[in-house]
Design a protein around this nucleic acid. Structure first.
Lengths: 154, 154
DNA sequence: CATAATAGTGAGTCAAGCTCACTATGAGGG
DNA sequence: CCCTCATAGTGAGCTTGACTCACTATTATG
């Protein structure tokens, strides 16, 4: 049985997804940054200097798309392409000074965002929320794994 | 203070947004339907026959964009354009038979989705989740209202 | 009636994804 | 050693969905 409560909760979840998305889009529209380019920067931060191939795999995007994103990020001075030390086919994407600074700013922005969402929430409620959300994510990941044509089982 | 718990919860929320988005994109890629076209269908369902202007406002999108979406939906036979009875500048977008059937199917899909996410969850936890999410949405809407250049205060 | 506002569209731009075809390089098998 | 195949990256060109600007047709108003 699906009750009204379930529907109400679903509506909340959908609204959350939309608002989070909007927020991301909006907050990054400076300095020629876009959502996708920002994803790439985050991934680069997580992995350190990487080949475009590795970035493509990590972002679940075609190699061609990464070429375009890196083109953009290079043009605006966030990253540079370096020759790969051992594989002359590959290039290493690395941060510039400016890129590092920008990512650090984005991290501060995320801290701010966490504060906005949760700072006023009593710990008990946060725990409950987090546990429920954990359950939901498990189900969602499972459903996603089953339907995703890219076969998201890593 | 922002604690590790806050960060963990934020990560969960971000993952939720991504998964929900992916799910929407994937589940609707049939019959020439896309996310935006589907949004328009939902809005049309909610409002009944509407002018493109009204749809543009409701979807917070330019009139030009709605023209394109309606073009697509008309081509695949989900909606038709009818002359407005009193204003000869305007056109009314209305469902075809097929459009109605499709929207009803989508509603069943949403029911299924609610079941997937919440059916196994004890009511207590669902209540707590929903309340916490409500708080969060209030803060998010507020933040969105402040930063949104379109001035989302209706 | 002249002017302003509104509804919709054509043309052209941009971001972000895709595929296909291509070059350059690397890795293995005879 | 060389021939073949795989891999890394890119050029060209397509799609969707957003945008703006300029335009037509119509309505509303001073």
């Amino acid at each position: 049985m699906v009750t009204d409560k379930h529907y109400a909760a679903l509506d909340q979840v959908l609204e959350l997804a939309v608002l989070i998305n909007d927020d991301m889009t909006r907050s990054l529209a400076q300095d020629g940054l876009t959502v996708s380019r920002t994803h790439l920067l985050w991934e680069l931060r997580r992995r350190g200097p990487s080949t475009q191939r590795d970035l493509a795999d990590a972002l679940k995007v075609s190699a061609r798309t990464v070429t375009g994103l890196v083109d953009g990020l290079e043009a605006t001075g966030f990253v540079t392409r370096q020759p790969h030390p051992t594989d002359r086919r590959a290039t290493l994407v690395t941060f510039t000074e400016r890129g590092v600074r920008t990512v650090e700013e984005m991290e501060r922005g995320q801290q701010e965002f966490a504060r906005l969402l949760f700072a006023e929430m009593p710990e008990e409620r946060l725990d409950c929320f987090s546990e429920a959300l954990g359950e939901i994510l498990i189900r969602l990941r499972e459903a996603s794994r089953l339907t995703d044509p890219r076969g998201g089982d890593q």
